[in-house]
């Protein structure tokens, strides 16, 4: 398991080629399609980072908006004084740290506590940031002026996507990844095999939170003006959950299959029927639960299995949370 398998090599080559091809998009268009591509890349990174944690643990995290907003704010606060790469690092640390705190408080307990805690987390951080700003600084909003264009942001997101995929692949090969697979099967066995279950979950959540923090930082120049309600928009958390589950969480690349169609669809719906976005998200959630419990990936796997062996696909085998 230490050497590259032929399959891994093939995936790596295809992945690198796809990234290289995607990197050419800004050369072809710098208007609508580039902006759409940025959104897709954004959600691809967010959903994959989310899946790093929520895939193996089955904990539904709604903390994405909080980590993302913290990343955005880091850049907003520091852009005039510190170099951008350093701000990215700070955003990663801040995101990871908050994830660690949330994890320590909730991950010892059942998944419900975790969901509830993360449900209001973005709102909580927004309140605190607003309060701090109104009481200790002059303005609530922050200006982020940089020389970055949409294309720069897109390339940074692609780089980040590559980093998330490589990290995910390394985790899967590591003891931590193996521990998570055991935990996903049976936590009791995991504990008695010597795995510190709570600690493993917290570490994974911190890695996920750190990546989401960086993503928020990368996106900050796009907003130009950062204020709490836009930076900590709770809708991001829900969109990430829905896209990742729509794609599937069993493979590293699976969320991508949800991100691409959903981002395009959401873009169309919000452009033509701006009052129907809530309804659309609601219906998507219902679809994930009742029609695609293992996401598009699960559906494809079932089809392949049916074709390949000529016998009906087995009933959706969802691992126990």
């Amino acid at each position: 398991m230490n050497a590259f398998t032929a399959r891994e090599l093939r995936t790596a080559v295809i992945g690198a080629a796809a990234l290289a091809a995607a990197a050419l998009i800004p050369l072809a268009d710098d208007g609508y399609y580039l902006s759409l591509a940025v959104n897709i890349a954004l959600y691809a990174v967010l959903c994959t980072a989310w899946t790093l944690f929520s895939g193996p643990t089955h904990y539904i995290s709604l903390a994405t908006a909080a980590f993302f907003g913290i990343g955005t704010y880091t850049v907003g606060l520091g852009i005039d004084t510190l170099p951008f790469p350093l701000l990215l690092a700070i955003a990663a640390i801040a995101g990871g740290l908050i994830a660690g705190l949330v994890g320590v408080a909730t991950l010892r307990l059942s998944g419900v506590y975790f969901v509830i805690f993360t449900l209001g987390l973005a709102e909580l951080v927004r309140q605190i940031v607003t309060w701090l700003q109104t009481n200790f600084t002059n303005a609530v909003g922050l200006y982020v002026f940089t020389d970055f264009t949409e294309a720069h942001i897109f390339w940074m997101l692609l780089g980040l996507a590559a980093l998330v995929y490589v990290t995910g692949w390394l985790i899967n090969r590591s003891r931590l990844g193996f521990a998570m697979r055991i935990i996903g099967n049976d936590e009791t066995v995991a504990r008695h095999a010597g795995i510190d279950v709570a600690r493993s979950k917290v570490i994974l959540f911190m890695i996920s939170g750190a990546f989401i923090g960086i993503t928020g930082a990368v996106l900050a120049p796009r907003f130009a003006y950062v204020e709490p309600p836009s930076a900590f928009n709770p809708l991001i958390s829900f969109q990430v959950v829905i896209m990742a589950l729509l794609g599937g969480t069993s493979r590293l690349w699976a969320p991508l299959l949800g991100v691409i169609p959903f981002t395009i669809l959401f873009d169309q719906v919000s452009a033509h029927f701006p009052n129907h976005t809530s309804l659309m998200i609601g219906i998507a959630f219902m679809a994930v639960v009742y029609v695609l419990p293992r996401g598009v990936t699960g559906l494809v796997e079932d089809l392949v299995r049916t074709r390949g062996s000529g016998r009906p696909a087995t009933v959706a085998e969802r691992a126990q949370p």
Partner: peptide, 16 residues
């Protein structure tokens, strides 16, 4: 997990 996701769906549908 299923009921959390399904009621999220309901939440957005009601809201919508």
């Amino acid at each position: 997990v299923d009921s959390i996701l399904a009621t999220f769906g309901l939440m957005f549908i009601f809201q919508g």
